[in-house]
Structures are given as C-alpha cells and as structure tokens.
C-alpha cells in the first residue's frame, strides 16, 4: 500500500480529496485500534512476563521485555508457599456461594418472571437497588452478628455474607432468562396435564440451563473477586482467600514482585476464562427457535 496521491487537478478536486480523506480515516482507525489493544492487554501481558522473569531481570531500569529463561518454577514455589491453601479457600467459598445463591435465586427469578406475586414491582426495585448499595453500609452490623455467632474467621461466615450481594444479582439475571422462555411452551405443558412443578422440571429447567450457567458464573466471579468482607471477617492467615492474600503480599516490604505477579496470574486466570465464556453465552439467543423452528 503506497500513499501516493495523484496531484489534484483543479477541476476534479472532490474525488481524490475524498479518497485521501477515506485513507486517512482508515489509517487513523487502525492506529486507534492498535493503541486500544495495547492499552487493554499490556498490563496483563506484563503481569505474565514479570511472573516468569528471573529475579535479576525484574528490577531493571530499562525493562527486559523477554525473559532470558522463563521461570515456570515460580508458580510451583508460589503454590507451595501456602497459596494452594488460599486457592482452596477461594474455591470453596465461591462454589458454596454459587450453589446456594443460584438455587435460591432460580426459585425467586422464576416466580417473578412467571407467576403473579403481589408486590412484584417493588420486589424488582429492591433487587435492583441492592446492587447499588455500598458494602460499607452492611459490613458493620454483619460484622457484629458474625462475631456474636462465632462466624468470624470462618468460611461459612464469608459464604453467608456473600449471599447478601450475589443473591439479588442472580435473581435479576435469572428473572430475565425465565422471562425470555416463551410462555406458550409452559402453557402447552399445563394444558397437556402437567402440574406446575412438572412443567418447570420438563420445560423450564432444560431451557433455562444456559441462564443458570450464566448466573452461576456471575455469582462465582463476584464471590471469587470479593475483597472487603474477606479482609474484614477473616484474620486467620490459613483461612484467607486469594484477594486478601495477594493484597497482604503486596503490602509486605521487599516482596518478590515475580511471586506477586504469579499470584495475580493464578487469581486472574480462572475468572477471565469464565468471563469470556459467559459473554458468548449471554449473547447467543438461547431460545431463539424453540417456538416455531
């Protein structure tokens, strides 16, 4: 592609001028795309690169962009130095929150989407508004209750606290999914003699599968990432979850940046994979075609 523009003849200026303009726009578009791509990805790339650099190449005035010898062993080190424990804690809490939260939310979401519940409008507003609450409004009373029930320094306490902000979110998402399943399918089942439960089990649950998967992933990510409650309710080191463990590593003087970055990678990787997964799920029209092929 050469950028030679023919000398503009005085009579026909518009055509070539417009063509140059289009070319400028194209060049600008690609330049912007490149900058944007770099801005989005560079921190993640740098995180991974730093995590596998030998110590001597991390602390250099001029950055070393490619590690001379990738230190994959650092991940093993990090896991052996207690991080497999934090990882297990995070997984346990996130999984338990997901199972409990999504179960409760699926029931409520279905009811809100389909059945006539009094106060439905207000319920939805409450659900929506709870997403807006600052967590610091909840944390003091929850802390007092947890302390009195002996649930501080316990993963159970964390799961309960996490249900506070994940349940409304899951209700909101699932209600949307249930609402998108055509009523006709269920009505047909009812007409054919199914009970409401039968219709739910045979028609709604299979169709809502993607919705349940998506909301599970959302809840899992929210619980996995949560920092404030975990920081406040768990002081015992062996019960910490990943974000708190990572933060305490960052705060430590003379911490090994390679280890910090390796931990960040371990913490980030599962949610990024999950996130990309839901994104596709959410956009693919799930029930398109269920009614009228």
């Amino acid at each position: 592609m050469t950028a030679i523009t023919p000398p503009a003849a005085p009579a026909g200026t518009t055509r070539p001028a417009r063509r140059t303009q289009a070319r400028v726009v194209t060049v600008l578009t690609y330049a912007a795309a490149l900058v944007l791509g770099a801005f989005s990805v560079a921190p993640l790339v740098w995180m991974v690169l730093t995590s596998i650099k030998p110590r001597a190449e991390i602390l250099t005035r001029d950055p070393v962009f490619w590690p001379s010898e990738p230190q994959w062993g650092r991940y093993v080190d990090v896991l052996e130095r207690g991080f497999s424990g934090y990882l297990t804690n995070s997984l346990t809490v996130a999984a338990a929150t997901t199972v409990l939260g999504v179960t409760v939310a699926a029931l409520a979401g279905y009811s809100l989407a389909r059945l006539q519940v009094g106060l439905k409008r207000y319920l939805l507003l409450v659900v929506l508004a709870t997403q807006m609450f600052p967590m610091v409004v909840l944390i003091i009373p929850l802390f007092a209750v947890m302390r009195n029930l002996g649930l501080l320094d316990s993963l159970v306490g964390l799961v309960i606290a996490y249900l506070s902000f994940t349940t409304p979110l899951a209700v909101w998402i699932l209600r949307g999914f249930f609402a998108s399943i055509p009523d006709d399918l269920e009505d047909a089942a009812l007409v054919d003699g199914c009970t409401r439960f039968g219709a739910i089990r045979r028609i709604v649950v299979p169709l809502a599968g993607p919705g349940i998967a998506a909301s599970s992933i959302f809840v899992f990510i929210a619980a996995w990432n949560e920092f404030l409650f975990a920081l406040t309710f768990v002081k015992q080191d062996s019960l910490r979850t990943l974000p708190v463990a990572l933060q305490s590593l960052v705060g430590r003087a003379g911490a090994d940046n390679g280890a910090i970055m390796a931990t960040s990678v371990l913490f980030t990787l599962p949610v990024v994979v999950f996130f990309l997964l839901v994104h596709r799920r959410m956009t693919s029209g799930m029930v398109a075609g269920a009614v009228k092929g």
Binding site: P43, P243, Q247, L276
Partner: peptide, 22 residues
C-alpha cells in the same frame, strides 16, 4: 479487539490494582 477489550473488565479489581501498582 472486541475480545481483548473485555480483558480489563474481566480482571479482578485487586489483581488489576496490584499489577498497575507495579
């Protein structure tokens, strides 16, 4: 690019802050 742009959003806040601090 549409996928790459998602990555910052997907990253846990604590991890993002850690990396940017570095």
């Amino acid at each position: 690019l549409g996928v790459l742009v998602l990555l910052p959003w997907a990253m846990p806040k604590v991890a993002a802050a850690t990396v940017w601090r570095w």
